[in-house]
Simulated scan of single mutants.
Amino acid sequence: MVTMRRALKVLTLLTLVIFFTSFFLSYSHTMMTTTWLPRQMVAELLESLRRLLTLSPRPCACARCIRQKHASPWFDKRFDGSMQPLLTAQNALLEEDTYSWWLRLQREKEPSNLNDTIKELFRVVPGDVDPLLARSPMGCRRCAVVGNSGNLRESWYGPQIDSHDFVLRMNKAPTVGFEADVGSKTTHHLMYPESFRELEENVNMVLVPFKTLDLEWVVSATTTGTISHTYIPVPSKIKVKKDQILIYHPAFIKYVFDRWLQGHGRYPSTGILSVIFSLHVCDEVDLYGFGADSKGNWHHYWENNPSAGAFRKTGVHDGDFEFNLTTTLASVHKLRIFTGR
């Protein structure tokens, strides 16, 4: 439909060019010289046609397309469409500076060899997943990223959230008992071993690896079950189907940290990693459950301690900077934020 409308615009403009060219050239041969030369008119029309033909095509069929260029210089400076958010067998080789940075995130004393670990990993989980999750340029993939803020309580966002094509959740976020406010649909759940929770059938688990041991844990948890402790106890076995396990790319974590967070915090939170992930795999993004509630409290929607806020200032993530980043993305119309209550 978008391509057809564009073709009609071009055809209409070409028709006008031909008509006005013929008219003014004929007029110039039969009448006295005028102050507006036909040649100037033709040049103006041709320039308009050139501008129309060189406009960037819309990258999706949505009313708002995240990847539309030249809409925001601030966004264009940060967004790199070539970055692949998911680790595959084809893009698993890390550059030295990326690998060194990633190894320092949780300071493993004796990390295993990464190449050997990745080879073992892709013997267990898919290693050929499309990094852009097969997004069609002619489609419109609407995504909801559901955070864990207490502002979701009594928001009644559930049906609205479930209407999206993709629904991304993170860490230990439950849905049972909270469906009216947070919805029941989940397509992708981002987590790491220490924040793992069992998922419903047909939900894709997106592992966010902050250390080599996290990758080893995936292999162990789906096979032998030998790893039951990282820096805290973790599940030794999980029920997630192997072909529904996706791996967040370590290089993409660094991209989020460098380009989007500009070095704030020690490394990105799962929340902001989910947001930037969605910008790369979705055409429209709506955020729910981010930030404080209406009273200024920071807490999880399933908790009964609304004065809690420890996860806001952990010394690891810069919660204020991350939240300001989401509001800036909203101000340049790259996503929408639903603030709840």
Rank of each mutant, 00 (worst) to 15 (best):
M4P: 01
M4F: 10
R6Y: 13
V10Q: 03
T12D: 07
L13W: 14
L14R: 00
T15F: 12
I18V: 13
F20M: 11
S26Q: 12
Y27V: 13
S28H: 09
H29C: 04
M31S: 14
M31G: 04
T35F: 14
Q40S: 12
S56A: 07
R58T: 12
C60G: 02
I66G: 02
H70W: 04
S72A: 11
D76K: 02
K77L: 10
R78G: 01
R78M: 06
L86S: 07
Q90N: 13
E95G: 15
E96I: 14
E96Q: 15
T98P: 06
T98Y: 05
W102P: 05
R104M: 13
R107S: 15
S112A: 15
N113S: 11
N113E: 14
T117Q: 00
V124H: 04
P126M: 06
D130N: 15
L132Q: 15
P137G: 05
V146D: 06
G150N: 05
N151E: 02
N151P: 05
L152D: 03
L152C: 07
G158Q: 09
S163D: 09
D165A: 13
F166D: 14
L168G: 01
R169I: 12
R169W: 13
N171G: 01
K172T: 13
A173H: 11
T175C: 05
G177F: 08
F178H: 12
E179R: 08
E179F: 02
V182G: 00
M191L: 12
S195A: 07
E200P: 07
E201W: 05
V203L: 03
N204I: 00
N204R: 01
P209R: 04
L213M: 13
V218W: 01
S220T: 13
S220R: 11
T223F: 04
P235I: 00
S236A: 15
K237M: 14
K241F: 03
Q244G: 04
I247K: 04
P250A: 06
A251E: 14
F257P: 04
F257H: 10
D258W: 02
G263C: 10
P268Q: 10
G271E: 08
I272R: 05
L273N: 12
F277N: 02
L279G: 03
D286C: 13
L287W: 10
Y288T: 10
G289K: 00
S294H: 07
W298N: 10
H300I: 00
Y301R: 06
W302V: 06
R312W: 15
F323E: 12
T326N: 00
T326I: 14
T327I: 06
H333S: 15
K334S: 01
G340M: 00
